[in-house]
């Protein structure tokens, strides 16, 4: 019960903080719309009009990933700047528990990205929103978002140790877009990248979402999303403990 309250209050607090940040608006709404627009024109130019919804969904997922990534990195970095990272580490609940709701809230706001690209595509480019399996879509999106949030938690734990979290965020944005095949097929990539793709929740997430919208097997990818989400949670609970300990030894919790 206490645990749930810690999670709920952290979730609310982070949503409030994100709501006042223009950077958040940029990553979760503006950037996905710009990338979606670029993708629409590229797809249209190649005569692949039938796949514009594919581009909408992909650009939306790119936004979900960016929000999770910058949210996780930013959340640790801001806490460090404000001097609250030490407070979190000093509080009685397990540190992973403190950051779990923050990560979930970050990923949750990633849904804005999906909504933004779908609405933008519908209104500006007239892309019809017909879903093959609406109910499975309604299930796949939140499942993917939660799994990404949990993956963000693993990242956040590394940022506790690594002061330049922003740089790591910048580095991980495109590669995950690429390796997860969010807007193009991973078959265009070299074979050795295949196992990397399989380990990424967004790879399975976008498959589930795409199949729910355009038709195809949803249950398989959806199961993988949930499994990888749970695995992330398990990993993060261990890494948080490790890194917090290492950060205390190396004194990287605060700036002073």
């Amino acid at each position: 019960m206490r645990t749930l309250r810690v999670i709920a209050s952290g979730f609310r607090m982070n949503l409030k903080m994100l709501g006042t940040s223009s950077f958040f608006l940029l990553t979760s709404v503006v950037q996905p719309i710009i990338f979606a627009t670029v993708a629409f024109y590229m797809f249209r130019s190649g005569g692949r009009n039938g796949t514009l919804l594919y581009a909408s969904l992909g650009a939306g997922m790119m936004g979900v990933w960016s929000t999770t990534l910058f949210g996780s990195g930013g959340m640790i970095q801001w806490q460090r700047w404000q001097g609250t990272l030490e407070l979190g580490a000093a509080a009685p609940p397990a540190i992973a528990l403190i950051y779990l709701p923050f990560s979930l809230a970050n990923a949750f706001t990633g849904m804005y990205a999906m909504a933004a690209t779908l609405v933008w595509g519908r209104v500006v480019f007239g892309i019809p929103l017909h879903f093959a399996h609406p109910w499975l879509f309604a299930l796949s999106l939140p499942a993917t978002v939660i799994a990404l949030g949990l993956m963000g938690l693993v990242l956040a734990s590394t940022f506790i140790l690594y002061r330049h979290a922003n740089a790591l965020s910048n580095l991980l944005e495109y590669p995950v877009w690429i390796a997860s095949g969010l807007v193009f097929s991973t078959s265009l990539l070299p074979d050795w990248t295949r196992p990397i793709s399989w380990c990424l929740p967004p790879y399975w997430g976008v498959l589930a979402i795409r199949h729910a919208a355009l038709g195809g097997d949803v249950r398989g990818p959806l199961g993988m999303v949930l499994a990888l989400g749970l695995a992330s949670l398990a990993i993060s609970s261990v890494t948080f403990r490790w890194f917090e300990h290492a950060a205390r030894a190396r004194a990287t919790l605060s700036l002073t």
């Binding site: 993708a39 590229m42 005569g47 692949r48 690429i178 807007v183 193009f184 097929s185 265009l188 990539l189």
Partner: peptide, 13 residues
């Protein structure tokens, strides 16, 4: 890499 692959996939340019 991202845009080159995306372009290849879209068969645009």
């Amino acid at each position: 890499i991202f845009f080159t692959k995306l372009g290849q996939f879209a068969q645009a340019q």
